[in-house]
Design a protein around this nucleic acid. Structure first.
Lengths: 250, 250
DNA sequence: TACCAGCTTTGATTCAAATCAACCGGAGTA
DNA sequence: TACTCCGGTTGATTTGAATCAAAGCTGGTA
């Protein structure tokens, strides 16, 4: 159960009501299950927002880590830059997700975070997050779950990279995106890719030509419709079957 | 599949609170930078030890998560079992490492943890760990670093699976083992593998025959000496060169 | 002691993806 | 308009790893 099940945050925070000062928090992954006052406390910490233009950098590998970033809107990739110039994409990230977890370990960012469309993030100073999570156990627990979920997600990607064929990988990838769009209230069958074939390939351990061919193949079989960056899923059941015998739902 | 006989029973933790248990903490990954009293506090929580025989199971995918496990001695693998019977190894773990982080997210274990040699672990009830880490900020910080390090490690594996050739993967793997043995006071150039070629292959995204061939190739080039499970590194510099230009602490 | 099951090596062949190469089409612009 | 750059597609060829197949070891045990 690779990408499909494992990834990303339950964004079900609709039950949370909050004042305007903290309303940005609503979209975030953190304040699940907090009460008014706790949200206020958290809000004091994450009030600083910032915008990143398409192509812009949120942080770079090697830079000092001080804060996590919660994506308020937009779409980013994280990638490791290799010496020879090629880059390996380690993840694509969308609204509600938390960036920078990998940097806690050494307090140095281990990858670049680059916006694939105009985006907006909230900065969350990590020291402060730890501080208030001491006072709010449910926040601490939730933070731990987010970190853990990231590990599970990575295991899913490892499974994909270690044992799936090109077409299975692409199907898995599309279904994962689809599900994440759905969770955010967008169509699960009609969406635009924000990344290039090369970036998809990098993430999936494939060359861009192979990605392109896999797209064409799925289109020939009438499972999806591809128009450049626009994807339409015609037959999600057959797409799931393409993913292989890995159980896709949970 | 070996069953419950050798499985660690981690349900009753009530008994055993020995000063000896506290001593054992020193070998663990957690109590870094704590004072005497804090170590004592932590010791109260992790006093329950258990042994797992070679081939035995510490926990299984699907089982309820309650505790993390710190390895006191031995060698374990974690793996995801796929429907078709094949398994993907997600990691090899040795003394001082912490198991079960992936299960925090859903409170269900997502993989099996199986001993590759007779091992001993300390059970760390997660609720209690969170509790005392509220009181000991440095412990909390350290725990977060451990989780983050796991994410970084997984990214390293993703890089390996996504972009390295068989020989590079094996070289990276051997160097990683070598470094971990060294850190634990063993020879970095002379060690025994605890896992089969198939398990190595599963971890590295290769078939066992490919692993075997890669071993033979490295031996032919006089970089290593292979005698079944025993590995001797003759020329660690050239082995590093084989890894490619990726700096990798995976 | 011999036997057997599981692990490992090695060779021959096949196959999936990488590589090499050509071309298409849209966006920006000179 | 024509030009160029960039991203994408498609075809031909090569190549690295998987697969298929056969033996060789090793360690446990009957």
């Amino acid at each position: 159960m690779p990408l499909e099940t494992s990834t990303c945050n339950h964004l079900d925070i609709s039950h949370i009501r909050s004042s305007c000062a903290t309303c940005s928090l609503r979209e975030l992954c953190l304040p699940v299950g907090l009460n008014e006052q706790e949200i206020q406390t958290l809000g004091d910490v994450v009030s600083h927002k910032c915008k990143i233009q398409r192509g812009g950098t949120l942080y770079r590998a090697g830079s000092k880590f001080q804060s996590l970033f919660a994506i308020r809107r937009g779409f980013l990739k994280t990638c490791i830059l290799e010496q020879d110039g090629r880059q390996q994409v380690t993840g694509f990230h969308m609204t509600g997700e938390l960036l920078g977890l990998d940097a806690i370990s050494t307090e140095i960012h281990t990858c670049d975070a680059i916006a694939l469309e105009d985006s907006e993030v909230c900065e969350i100073p990590f020291e402060k997050l730890e501080e208030i999570s001491r006072a709010i156990p449910s926040l601490m627990r939730h933070f731990h779950k987010i970190m853990s979920r990231e590990i599970v997600r990575d295991h899913g990607v490892m499974l994909l990279l270690g044992s799936m064929k090109a077409e299975e990988r692409l199907a898995t990838f599309l279904l994962n995106l689809s599900r994440r769009f759905l969770m955010r209230g967008y169509s699960e069958c009609n969406f635009n890719l924000r990344m290039t074939r090369e970036e998809i390939g990098s993430y999936l351990g494939l060359k861009l030509e192979t990605v392109s061919r896999a797209f064409s193949k799925l289109q020939d079989e009438n499972i999806i419709r591809v128009d450049n960056k626009h994807i339409q899923i015609n037959d999600i059941t057959r797409l799931r079957m393409k993913m292989g015998n890995t159980t896709c739902d949970t």
